[in-house]
Amino acid sequence: MYKIRKAEKLAENIFLMDVEAPRIAKSCEPGQFLIVKMDEKGERIPLTICDYHREDGTVTIVFQIVGASTKKMAELQAGDSFRDVIGPLGQASEFIHEPAAELKEKKYLFVAGGVGTAPVYPQVKWMKENGIAVDVIVGAKTKDLLILEDEMRAVAGNLYITTDDGSYERKGMVTEVIKDLVQNQGKHYDQVVAIGPMIMMKFVCLLTKELGLPTIVSLNPIMVDGTGMCGACRVTVGDQVKFACVDGPEFDGHLVNFDEAMKRQTIYKTQEGRAMLKLQEGDTHHGGCGHCGGDE
């Protein structure tokens, strides 16, 4: 069992947890993820490792409610436990293997969208710990959905926050901020790292390709085992099929086939929709009524 030390609501439908997982805390690096399984009957849910405390033996996860399993997970409290936590999985971000001197010469821009702020955080923190100040753009739908602002401010070089509705700081999408920084403010970047919803990463990549900025993205396809055994997570990168759980999750964004990846994410939408309905309506919903859409 893996005990939850801390459980906190960061924003509507977004939660943070510190979980005891000593082996993972000891060996994980930025860019990697883990898998949690709540109980015997639960799904295996992949989540990015957002922070880690090696001495404490804990790791931090941040997740958003999108379906039945994450909804159930949000009900867990400090003191509760996960039945299983597996990891660290996937490759660490490439930059951690680069010689420090070379890395210091490079200018990095991190672009975070929504709950993607969480996976970007450990990377920016790692940079700060290695004496590198990076630029960070964080985009949120609205002010209330902005997460980890203080944490990010403490480790970023320059932090640019934007909200879709203009309820806080800038107004507009992250792509507009990138354009502004590069075209109006004359900034130059050697490497962009973009993490967020698939659609946001797709548009960031379209833009950075135009601007000639190499871009790394972190993909979140559907996964089962996370160890290269099932192929559920396969994505097309360039002309190759890759397994995101072992070859990734980070890839060259300009080579990723986002349209295919987005379609693949919807494979279980109907089944998941049904599970969500069952959870929301409890015993009153049995499916088969044919009116509510739960059977589609």
Partner: peptide, 9 residues
């Protein structure tokens, strides 16, 4: 269980 050799250790 849950230990991936080559990753966890």
């Amino acid at each position: 269980t849950n230990v991936v050799i080559g990753k966890s250790v």
